[in-house]
Design a protein around this nucleic acid. Structure first.
Lengths: 171, 171
DNA sequence: TTGGTCATGTAATTCGTTACATGATTGA
DNA sequence: TCAATCATGTAACGAATTACATGACCAA
């Protein structure tokens, strides 16, 4: 239930409405923790009920601005220091690999080729993003670049693995 | 809903009961597609109702042996050839990285150190497994080794990234 | 005045987890 | 006979997705 912590994390930086948080998610957190609008509004209400956030202002169009409370900061801090539970490694690609012997050689090659293509495209996209970010130098960009580097290395790893695996099929 | 396809994949190789499938999951698929017993029995009933599998034999203790049908093979084949939807990349570690500026430098280093440690341990465990498998040479081991290689490269990537990120913190 | 954006919600459904329930069979 | 294993299920809950519903405000 880390959506909760993602919301607390964003609110720790500055107060915001559900709508604001939604946009922040879309622009900054979408690739590490996707969430839908329904989920967010629900979770915000639960956070408010639990005293982790409070409505600090009301604006036009029923806008509610949420501010993190001391309890909320505590929970956020506890989460940050708790051991990170490793990502549930449910992996559809590997599941297909496991059943590769049920597919024809052409199908098998296609599965790996598709992944290689996607990984290559991802890598290029992220590399371009890194180049674009190198010019900026804010305090926020440090974390961003660390996360970006993860994505780059991951894409590289998948691309190289897919190539290697394709080679393994022909023996 | 790939649990469905995992079950079909196992049944494509040989008929089995829910109990057998459970054990197969635990020994072979646990790390790519974990599933609980509840889920499996439920899904098997749904597959039977949809005509993808059928009860081919009944044994002692209410044992039901399932066999894949032509419809089931079709569905499995469709899944294998369909584009692999990329793993939902909800990643708690990266979420924490995103909020690293909210933590103290010690906390930040601890988060990365923990991941480095885990990744290193994973890598060693898988490397040992690879060595153990190198002596065998069955027809099933090809897929297995490709999947294993993925795990190895992934652990290596995370380990190296965590080291690099720790270095980035000190600038 | 009307269309776009701001803004918040509910409902239905699926997937997954944990815990509980039940009983048959086998081997020591 | 009794404990372990075989064998299948139900119930309750939480997390996530998709679709739908509603309305206020602002600018052209």
């Amino acid at each position: 239930m880390s959506l909760r912590h993602a919301l607390l994390g964003l609110l720790a930086d500055r107060s915001a409405s559900g709508y604001d948080l939604m946009k922040l998610f879309d622009t900054s957190l979408a690739h590490v923790w996707p969430a839908t609008q329904s989920q967010m509004y629900g979770e915000l209400n639960r956070l408010a009920e639990a005293g982790r956030v409070e409505v600090s202002a009301e604006g036009p169009r029923r806008r509610k601005e949420y501010t993190i409370t001391a309890q909320g900061r505590k929970e956020l801090d506890d989460w940050l220091t708790a051991p990170t539970q490793q990502s549930p490694r449910r992996n559809e690609l590997l599941l297909k690999v496991f059943f590769l012997n049920l597919a024809t050689p052409e199908q098998a090659r296609a599965i790996l080729a598709e992944r290689e293509g996607r990984a290559t495209a991802d890598h290029e996209r992220l590399a371009a993003l890194r180049t674009a970010l190198e010019s900026e130098d804010g305090p926020l960009t440090v974390n961003g670049r660390i996360a970006l580097e993860y994505g780059l290395r991951w894409a590289e790893m998948e691309r190289d693995w897919a190539r290697w695996a394709t080679g393994q099929l022909e023996r």
